[in-house]
Design a protein around this nucleic acid. Structure first.
Length: 511
RNA sequence: CGGGGCGUAGCUCAGCCUGGUAGAGCGCUUGCUUUGGGAGCAAGAAGUCGUGAGUUCGAAUCUCGCCGCCCCGACCA
């Protein structure tokens, strides 16, 4: 039977959203569960998350944070403490109202479980933990000597989404949420910026995604925040995706939760707080940023297996010899260090057809595939395939040479992915000055690739939230961020209102 | 929650219009052959046709209710 030329159908150009779903499935990353909006994260997907988690966690520790854990259930009354916050999350909260079940036999012999024991005060399954952590902070903070308080938690949260998509928007998702309290506004702002930098750095150097750091407009801010910093990435259908956020909360939550301390001046005052987070959405971002028509491409630094060794065993009598040689090679490689961690090498010994096995790892996006068979053992060579090149690309090299170059190869793949993603972003980022140009940029649906038109439009902006709302309605386009960086600072006139502007903002369609 | 579509084997779907004993491909199991590449042949396992009622001698097929899913809108990390 003839195979399609690509492992994934449809291709990205044919139908990007469908391609995404097929990749998630083909790469065995996750699947939909029987509970609507909730996903089962399968080992390959969870392996990615574990690496993201471990590497980010190290960065959090390095910036002075410690981990803790707070309850899943939040008293309903807590959510009522901060008006904007409550309003922002009201429409997507799961509520726990009962604490027991009663088994009732039905006429047909089956048993139905009926919730009983109604709670006096219902609980909300955390959509985020500002309120309950705020309550803890209020107990823990008494003096300026207790500050700063730098806490992070790795947890699951639940937001009852109307239209779930694996990794990108699920009802339950995994994330980390940092929560900090500070003595002064300046310190809290510095913390917000620091974590913002940590995210941008992580995206760039670990996930090979060149995100644009910036601030959100009032309309796009976290409910209850004074300011929200974001890292906005472009994925291959040219849409923007918010990959991480860092919020300066001012004293809003401190006042709501009564986080007060006695200052150096012997005055009782409210603390300044921040919060910041990234979620399993990063995995969706990674898939859409780097994947190709043969599946996902995993950046080496976060790959669960960085190298997969495929024993080629054409004859049963040499099979064991080949497998032993592969294991030996794996051991040698595992002794090496790549970006501060031991190389993650897997030998796929399954008794499967060689081609099928190879394609499986292509779809999963393993950075390096190494084939070794009886002939290679004789000639002391291996056949190496890089995932960032085509599926047929294969280089025969000496085994010793490969061992020497393995980490360099991985590093090169990591770099190439970043280069490729940067080129995509730059190619579809345009400085535009008029409404007509703006319309043309986002109006050109269905170009030759079938992708929606547009990309990142850098526009001068001095409009109001209402103006923003209107553009969102008319063009499905929003201000993704007011980017930091000198290259965006220039004098000009708002493309909508004509008012003076000193900085360009990023407009895009988004996830 | 509005507008459209769909529920049949693990997956993708045909069969429904025109009612008459449940089908295909892929996947799975076993055997043989093959093996530097997503294999071939043969045999086999697997479905109370989403669910409840109605019409009928007879319902996957017709009618109504309910449930669920997908797509398009409103919401979002």
């Amino acid at each position: 039977m003839s195979q399609p030329t690509t492992a994934i159908t449809p291709t990205r150009a044919q139908d990007f959203p469908e391609w995404y779903q097929q990749v998630v499935r083909a790469a065995d990353l996750a699947e939909n569960s029987e509970v609507r909006g909730c996903m089962v994260i399968k080992p390959w997907g969870y392996g990615l998350w574990e690496n993201i988690q471990r590497q980010l966690d190290a960065k959090f520790k390095a910036t002075g944070h410690v981990n803790a854990y707070f309850p899943l259930l939040i008293p309903l009354s807590y959510l009522e403490k901060e008006a904007q916050h409550a309003e922002g999350f009201a429409t997507e909260c799961a509520v726990v109202t009962h604490h027991r079940l009663e088994a009732r036999k039905q006429a047909d012999g089956t048993t139905k479980m009926i919730p009983t024991g109604e709670l006096a005060e219902p609980f909300v399954i955390r959509p985020t933990s500002e309120t309950i952590i705020g309550a803890a902070f209020a107990r823990w903070v008494e003096s300026y000597r207790d500050l700063p308080l730098l806490i992070n938690q790795w947890a699951n949260v639940m937001r009852w989404e109307m239209r779930p998509r694996l990794f990108l928007r699920t009802a339950e998702f995994l994330w980390q949420e940092g929560h900090t309290a500070h003595e002064t506004a300046e310190e809290a702002m510095e913390e917000t910026r620091t974590m913002h930098r940590v995210y941008a750095d992580f995206l760039r150097h670990h996930l090979a995604i060149p995100a644009i750091p910036g601030e959100k407009t009032e309309r796009e801010r976290f409910p209850g925040a004074v300011n929200t910093f974001t890292v906005e990435a472009m994925v291959q259908d040219r849409k923007a995706i918010q990959a991480g956020t860092s919020h300066f909360l001012g004293q809003n939550f401190a006042k709501a939760s009564n986080i007060q301390f006695l200052g150096r001046d012997n005055q009782r005052q409210f603390a300044w707080t921040t919060s910041w987070g990234v979620s399993t959405r990063l995995i969706g971002t990674l898939i859409m940023a780097h994947g190709d028509d043969d599946g996902v491409i995993v950046p080496p630094r976060v790959a669960p297996h960085q190298i997969v060794i495929l024993p080629v065993t054409p004859k049963p009598d040499t099979r064991q010899e080949v497998i032993d040689a592969c294991e030996a090679l794996a051991q040698t490689l595992r002794a090496q260090v790549f970006f501060g961690e031991p190389l993650r090498v897997h030998v796929d010994k399954r008794d499967l057809q060689g081609g099928a096995k190879n394609w499986e790892w292509i779809k999963k996006g393993v950075p390096l595939r190494v084939e070794m068979g009886p002939r290679d053992i004789t000639s002391r060579s291996v056949a190496v395939s890089r995932r960032d090149l085509g599926p047929k690309a294969k280089e025969i090299m000496g085994k010793e040479e490969f061992i020497r170059n393995a980490t360099d190869l991985l590093e090169d793949i990591q770099e190439k992915l970043l280069e490729r993603a940067t080129a995509l972003r730059d190619e579809h980022t345009k400085r535009l000055d008029t409404l007509d140009e703006f319309k043309a940029f986002f109006g050109a649906d269905d170009d030759e690739k079938g992708a929606p038109g547009g990309g990142f439009a850098l526009m001068h902006w001095a409009g109001t939230s209402e103006d923003e709302e209107k553009l969102a309605k008319d063009f499905k386009t929003t201000i993704r961020c007011i980017p930091h960086g000198d290259e965006y600072a220039e004098e000009g006139a708002c493309f909508l209102t004509g008012k003076a502007s000193r900085r360009r903002v990023v407009f895009a369609r988004s996830y």
